[in-house]
């Protein structure tokens, strides 16, 4: 890992936060391809054979270009760490990720804003998954009390490619979150977009996931799970478009509400090809009564049962 001399302290501060939050510090090792961003600066950069990461510091943030060659299969994830260690401000990160043909890679993306009180983070990502390649993109967040986050990801999955995107914000406050993920699928391409968010107090969450099933035999799943407590507001829009012959898509949204939370889910399924097939399932409401009572019959209190159910839903 190349760390600029004047940025060692920030690097160490980020490592401390990883340790405190139970995140994997081995991601900072030399065998891992990585870009470590703090504020508007690149504080660490590491490339490994088959992976080329280039970074550029721009106004209020960083632009990064990540290229994976053809036929690359990495034993370790590629680490994208975006940190902001001050309480206030604005940060914009732009990622352009291109994965070649017949490659298999995993990205572990961490957004670390533990001290944010009045902070806006904007992330724009464009991801291209090459023919017959497989990409897993795992996005996890450590937020302080005051993060306004706007995240927009566009994924283009080429023929026979597979993309799995996971967004998780469950252990920290969402505060103000606008999350938009779009996946465009070519012939035989597969995509799964999963988001898990917990909203509390007066958090505001907007999630929009879009699946464009353009290719023949393309398949996709959108799955959102939101726990909304207190006075939070949540709006989830899941859109799937069946365009290619024999394209198949499934949209699933589950929202558990407690307190005065205001929650809405809108599934939009549109087919423009009579050979395509789309399905959806959605639920909004209190925690399922049958689940609660069956756990209570084993001796848990209602609160203990609810906590266990929610932990399961959020995959904690």
């Amino acid at each position: 890992m190349t760390i600029k001399v004047d940025r060692v302290k920030e690097y160490e501060a980020l490592l401390d936060i990883y340790e405190r939050e139970g995140l994997d510090t081995s991601l900072f090792g030399d065998r891992i391809a990585a870009i470590i961003i703090s504020g508007d600066r690149i504080i660490g950069l590491n490339n490994v054979p088959g992976v080329e990461i280039k970074g550029e510091e721009i106004e209020n943030g960083v632009r990064a270009d990540v290229r994976i060659a053809d036929g690359v299969e990495l034993p370790f994830p590629i680490h994208l760490c975006t940190g902001y260690l001050k309480g206030e401000g604005y940060q914009r990160v732009e990622f352009s990720i291109t994965v070649g043909k017949n490659s298999k890679v995993k990205f572990t993306s961490h957004c670390i804003f533990p001290y944010a009180k009045d902070f806006t983070h904007e992330a724009i990502s464009k991801i291209t998954v090459g023919e017959n390649s497989s990409v897993l993109y795992d996005d996890e967040h450590v937020h302080g009390e005051g993060v306004r986050m706007i995240s927009k990801t566009e994924v283009d999955v080429k023929a026979g490619g597979r993309y799995t995107g996971k967004f998780t914000l469950t252990k920290h406050r969402a505060r103000e979150l606008k999350l938009e993920m779009t996946a465009k699928l070519a012939e035989r391409a597969v995509a799964e977009l999963t988001s898990k968010v917990k909203a509390v107090q007066d958090d505001s969450v907007e999630i929009r996931e879009v699946l464009l099933l353009e290719g023949t035999h393309s398949r996709g799943d959108l799955k959102s799970t939101v726990i909304a407590f207190d006075n939070s507001r949540v709006n989830v829009v899941n859109e799937a478009y069946g365009l290619g012959d024999y394209a198949k898509g499934h949209v699933e949204c589950h929202e558990v509400v407690k307190g005065e939370a205001d929650v809405q889910t809108v599934p939009l399924l549109r087919v423009k090809n009579d050979k395509a097939e789309l399905t959806h399932e959605a639920s909004i409401g209190r925690i399922n009564e049958a689940q609660l009572v069956q756990l209570m019959a084993k001796g848990l209190t209602e609160d203990e049962a609810a906590e266990l159910i929610i932990k399961g839903l959020l995959g904690e």
């Binding site: 689940q291 069956q294 848990l300 203990e304 266990l308 159910i309 932990k311």
Partner: peptide
Amino acid sequence: EPARYEGIRIREYLTLGGKL
């Protein structure tokens, strides 16, 4: 009609999330 529990493993259910 036993309920389904998304994200809860059988071991975890049997031990009530570690309480038993």
